[in-house]
């Protein structure tokens, strides 16, 4: 059985057995959870379908959050992508950005989502995976399998650092989601297990120190847009790893650094709405708008 106490354990085991990380993890989880691999894949496929539905729900023009502070971002970006033939980033990425924001918007409007690893960071993995499925025609089975790789990376991060904004800041939520997505994308693109680890490392490095400072304490501002940066970093990190641009700090050390940085963050920047954007004049005004004085 796997211990999930380092990424190195996962990549080395997978390379020794000449299997993908997802295959290794599926076999292990099937044993641990005393369920057949097929039933776990079915459950994961169900989660992927929830992600696809969340994209559709959140992409509606009239999507509004419960507080009224945000809404319609996914639609605007999709519309822009279509109008301009892909804006600056190109059709594939602008559409992916729209999907990530749509899922985060679906969450803010009390729609159904898959926490991956959290509700606040729930747009990153679907933004990446639904885009590969719909715009690059990757088989659903491969996408669903890659979610086991993403999940295994998240388990290691949760064990050695944190996936909670209240503990480690946004780096622990969107940073972890981005690292998980980067690993999944790398596997889907045919990368080796250690390249999956490299991609995760690069993604974490790029979000180290990111604080959790939600306006009015709500999972909206800046969370929805941070799902976009998490998605962009996941794509670029996967591409870097696949190109052979290795991180100079190994992934497990990056995760340790994330924990250390998280511990060093003051409480005001760990989901308490006590600092950062939350206490800017506009942040405070928006809070008053929702909750009164």
């Amino acid at each position: 059985m796997l211990k999930y106490d380092s990424i190195r354990e996962l990549t080395r085991e997978a390379e020794n057995r000449q299997v993908k990380i997802s295959e290794l993890v599926l076999a292990d989880q099937s044993q641990v959870m005393e369920q057949t691999p097929e039933s776990l894949v079915d459950q994961m496929r169900e989660s992927f379908r929830v992600m696809q539905e969340a994209v559709i729900t959140g992409q509606k023009k009239d999507q509004r959050s419960m507080s009224g502070l945000t809404g319609g971002e996914g639609f605007l970006m999709k519309d822009y992508a279509e109008r301009t033939g892909g804006g600056l980033c190109g059709s594939f990425l602008t559409r992916a950005i729209s999907r990530a924001m749509s899922v985060a918007g679906c969450n803010a409007s009390m729609g159904r989502i898959v926490a991956a690893p959290t509700a606040g960071s729930c747009g990153i993995l679907p933004g990446c995976l639904v885009s590969l499925y719909e715009d690059r025609q990757y088989p659903e089975q491969d996408i669903v399998m890659s979610m086991f790789t993403a999940g295994a990376f998240g388990m290691v991060i949760a064990a050695n650092s944190s996936i909670a904004g209240a503990q480690g800041g946004c780096q622990a939520e969107c940073g972890s989601a981005s690292g998980m997505a980067a690993a999944a994308l790398t596997e889907l693109m045919g990368g080796t297990p250690s390249q999956c680890g490299d991609a995760c490392a690069i993604a974490i490095v790029n979000q180290l120190g990111l604080v959790c400072d939600p306006v009015a304490g709500l999972v909206e501002i800046p969370c929805i847009k941070r799902n976009v940066s998490g998605l962009m970093i996941a794509f670029s990190s996967a591409d870097l790893a696949l190109a052979g641009v290795a991180p100079r700090i190994p992934v497990d050390e990056c995760i340790d650094a994330m924990r250390e940085v998280g511990n060093a963050l003051p409480a005001s920047l760990r989901e308490t709405a006590g600092g950062g954007l939350a206490t800017t004049p506009t942040g405070l005004r928006l809070r008053e708008q929702v909750f009164g004085k």
Binding site: Q29, M33, A116, T118, G151
Partner: peptide, 20 residues
């Protein structure tokens, strides 16, 4: 902890603590 604690739960948003 298992894989569905990380890829999951499937929940209604917006907050795991304040909603789910």
């Amino acid at each position: 902890m298992n894989i569905f604690d990380i890829i999951g739960p499937v929940m209604i948003g917006p907050s795991s603590s304040h909603t789910a």
